[in-house]
Amino acid sequence: MKLTRADVEHIAQLARLELAPEEIELFREQLSAILEYAARLQELDTEAIPPTAQVIEWRNVMRDDEVRPSLPQDEVLANAPEARDGYFVVPTVLEEHA
C-alpha cells in the first residue's frame, strides 16, 4: 500500500495535525512500509470469524444515576491554557454574519 502526499495530507487533516513538509514525506514513507507489513493479514480467510473489540465478555455495567460531588471548578480550570469567569477561553469558532 503506497500512500501519496495527498493521502498523508488528508489523514493529517482528519486527525487535526499540522505537519511540516518534511514530516509529510517521512510519514508517507514510514506509513506505507507499516501498511505493507500489515497487508499480510489479508492472507487469512476471516469470513466466518467474528471480530474481537475487547476480550472480557461483559455486558453493560450499570449503576444508579446519583448526584455525587464533582471536582471543584477552580481545580479543573487551573490546568486550562486560558480561562475567564469560570469558562475556557478559545479563539473564534463561528464568524458573525453581517
Partner: peptide, 28 residues
C-alpha cells in the same frame, strides 16, 4: 503523530473493513 496518523487511516472511510475490522477478526 505516526500512530495517530496510522490509526486515523485504519479507521477512515473506505479502509475500516480492510484494516481495523480485519485486525479485530485476526485478534479473535
Amino acid at each position: 503523530k505516526r500512530r495517530i496518523m496510522l490509526g486515523t487511516y485504519a479507521l477512515s472511510a473506505g479502509y475500516y473493513d480492510q484494516y481495523y475490522k480485519k485486525a479485530q477478526k485476526v485478534r479473535t
